[in-house]
Simulated scan of single mutants.
Amino acid sequence: MPRKSNSIKGNGDIDIELYRYRHLVENAFARLKQFRTLATRFDKVKRNYERVVATVCVFLWLPT
């Protein structure tokens, strides 16, 4: 995570591209958690849970 602008160390050693990808992944998980079924994990069978995750990902991918 980038440091504050008044930091003594600065941000010279941070990989900006890697940080952007990390930000995208964190946002994707935040959007997935909005669905109650995923957030509470009602499906205890791995196969069913994977199908719900895939369905929600397709739903999020479709234009609104």
Rank of each mutant, 00 (worst) to 15 (best):
S7N: 05
K33Y: 14
D43A: 03
Y19I: 13
D13K: 10
E17S: 09
Y49M: 08
M1Q: 01
Q34N: 15
N48H: 06
K44L: 07
P2I: 04
W61E: 12
I16M: 13
R20H: 08
F35G: 01
D15P: 05
V45E: 13
P63C: 04
R47I: 01
F59L: 11
L60N: 05
G12P: 02
V56G: 01
T55W: 07
Y49D: 08
D13C: 04
N6L: 05
D15L: 06
S7Q: 01
W61I: 03
V52S: 08
H23K: 15
G12A: 07
R3T: 03
E50Q: 11
T40G: 04
A54H: 06
L38S: 09
R36P: 02
R22I: 09
Q34S: 12
Y49I: 01
P63R: 05
C57F: 06
V25R: 15
F35A: 05
K44T: 11
V56T: 06
Y19A: 12
C57T: 00
R20I: 07
T64C: 05
L62M: 09
K44A: 01
E50P: 00
N48Q: 07
K33E: 12
P2L: 10
F29L: 12
E17A: 13
E17R: 06
R36T: 11
V56Q: 04
L60R: 03
N48R: 09
I16G: 10
G12N: 07
C57A: 14
C57N: 09
C57R: 05
P63F: 02
A39D: 12
Y49C: 00
N48I: 06
V58H: 14
K46E: 13
D43T: 01
H23V: 11
N48D: 10
D43G: 00
A28L: 15
I14Q: 08
K4T: 03
R36L: 00
A54K: 10
L62Y: 02
N11C: 01
K33C: 14
R41M: 14
N11D: 11
Y21C: 11
L24R: 13
K33F: 10
G10E: 04
L18V: 09
P2D: 06
R47Q: 09
V52G: 00
L24A: 12
